[in-house]
Design a protein around this nucleic acid. Structure first.
Lengths: 323, 323
DNA sequence: AAACCCGATGCACAAACGTGCAAGGAGTCC
DNA sequence: GGACTCCTTGCACGTTTGTGCATCGGGTTT
């Protein structure tokens, strides 16, 4: 009877789609939808949750064209980048602030991802939080690539970093490219040798042709130390050296100063992350920052032109502009 | 202190925007938002309603790319047009069905509208329902043009038609172009004379260069008669004549047969609506149909290639394909 | 076949939400 | 100044929604 083959799709997805139509586009109550779908209201509630999580429903909040958002416009004017300011009340705890920024970042990131795309991701507490909030979005032929190694003298770090990577991969239906090397090498010669290994150099080459990267900022000397600095990745000598050379932060374990320079920071020769020049060659560089302790670090990254899209909480955004 | 002039925007809109961000993007409860905005929860509820109505929040339901919606794909395959099928259970009353289709149509239409655009709108029960559900969307320099007159021997029809027009105008911030003429002239010569008046010919010319039009279908002989046919627009002779010439429906009081032809239907010479050739010259022609009583009428409009985008309830869509 | 696991379901309850209503301004007219 | 309208606010109530829990059924392991 039907002009084409019967629906061959997952019935759960089909129901979720119908429910979403009825709920979001026709304003029916879940009760009414339950009746139409011959199920219970609670199932409809779960169905809708499923629809939201899997990206069947997309909710956008857009400021009217005639009133660009204040802080975001100011940041564009001053730094020449696109900003997404996440409103968070000032007295919020650091933990909650990070979580709320990460939640928004995850949504925004979904808009940047598409088929045939390669995405580089760093790791750290910001990326970990972000990865937990990703909304799935079906893509074809896309790849998620780890930016820097996660092994340190204590652990291989593979579990931690790969958990983040995997979440990205499954959210976007992308293949995942791990990078099983130490975060920071003891001996730069070892790094050079390893970089000649085909299995490793393949990933290094992929990193150079990424379409988009996402990262948080590491701030070694800020009040709240980043994951990198309490995980045993660096020893006391390393810290002393960083301080002596004036480093204020890192992206994927590659360090820079507040003025944006990074020459003559010896640690970078031992780092597994892509050089800042490589990063600057990537078209879209999404930076997620939460909390004023990262302010100095953020200034450095901006001075180094390492960021094209910034996602930041409102308090930090204000301080950034005020300073 | 602030790097740019303080926010000069409507505080209500600003709050609505913030609330929408917090609610839809950060999943806070209204209570929490009320606390952050220093207002009551009920105000936040209203604020969010305002945000949805004014298009600050946009909710899309998109089927995953790998499973295009069944009926819509079938309709495209068979008729070469874009369809939006609105799921409605079969036993729904005609009134509710119309309302639900109109609600969805209003949302979909919002996606078609943009600045610098001219939109032609018909009138009738479908358009009336549609107009009541429009979501506002700010545009510049756009115009809404009435497609056909609404006066009849009993009333000037201005109130009825202009109410619809006004709703479109205020939803999109567009200027409204009325068309104060009878729906159907008694004497074609009067129409010809009036068409030479500059005030009228201006509108007639505008109709020829529209970017988009929206209309329902009139079905004179269907079980449920359309607004046009019970409002005193046509007399018994007119009906007899329509039946004799094989007309099955009209768009903006211009009639056509089931095979799509419209030559030799005398009533069309007296009608105030744009000729079907004019309609076919318009890039996007959005048709809203609800209920199986319009099936035959819909077939005619499709045969006449009068539709580029069809918004239709699921039952009618199925019947359309089955027939 | 029994034991087990896992996801889906509906129930019941608490939490979250929409809205009629009356009260409280702000502005306007007399 | 008083009386009026019009808009906004918070409250209170009934409705709608999220979710822990117990249950159930299909599939897999032992």
């Amino acid at each position: 009877m039907s002009p084409s083959k019967a629906a061959q799709l997952n019935p759960k997805t089909r129901d979720a789609l119908t429910a979403a139509q009825l709920y979001y586009l026709q304003d029916l109550t879940m009760d009414a939808i339950a009746h139409e779908l011959h199920t219970s209201r609670s199932s409809v509630s779960r169905l809708l949750g499923h629809a939201r999580e899997t990206g069947l429903v997309e909710i956008q909040v857009r400021s009217p064209l005639d009133m660009p958002r204040q802080l975001e416009g100011d940041i564009r004017a001053q730094f020449g980048i696109t900003a997404h300011v996440v409103p968070v009340p000032d007295q919020t705890s650091d933990v909650e602030r990070l979580d709320r920024v990460a939640l928004s970042a995850a949504r925004i990131l979904g808009g940047f991802i598409d088929s045939n795309m390669s995405l580089g991701v760093a790791w750290g507490s910001t990326m970990s939080a972000l990865s937990r909030h990703l909304l799935s979005k079906a893509t074809h032929n896309s790849t998620v690539v780890q930016l820097n190694g996660a092994a340190n003298p204590r652990t291989t770090g593979i579990l931690y970093a790969s958990e983040i990577l995997q979440r990205f991969g499954s959210a976007y239906g992308a293949t995942v490219q791990q990078f099983p090397v130490p975060a920071v090498f003891d001996d730069p010669a070892t790094k050079a040798a390893l970089w000649r290994e085909r299995s490793i150099s393949r990933v290094v080459e992929m990193q150079k042709t990424l379409d988009t990267i996402v990262f948080g900022l590491g701030s070694p000397f800020a009040g709240v130390p980043s994951h990198v600095y309490i995980g045993g990745y660096l020893d006391d000598d390393d810290f002393a050296q960083l301080r002596a050379t004036g480093a204020v932060g890192d992206i994927a374990t590659v360090f820079y100063r507040e003025d944006g320079s990074s020459d003559g920071i010896p640690l970078n020769d031992r780092s597994s992350g892509p050089s800042l020049d490589v990063l600057r060659g990537i078209a879209r560089r999404v930076c997620v920052v939460s909390g004023e302790s990262k302010l100095q670090t953020l200034r450095g990254a901006l001075a180094a032109r390492l960021i094209t899209d910034l996602i930041v909480d409102s308090g930090t955004a204000r301080k950034l502009l005020a300073g």
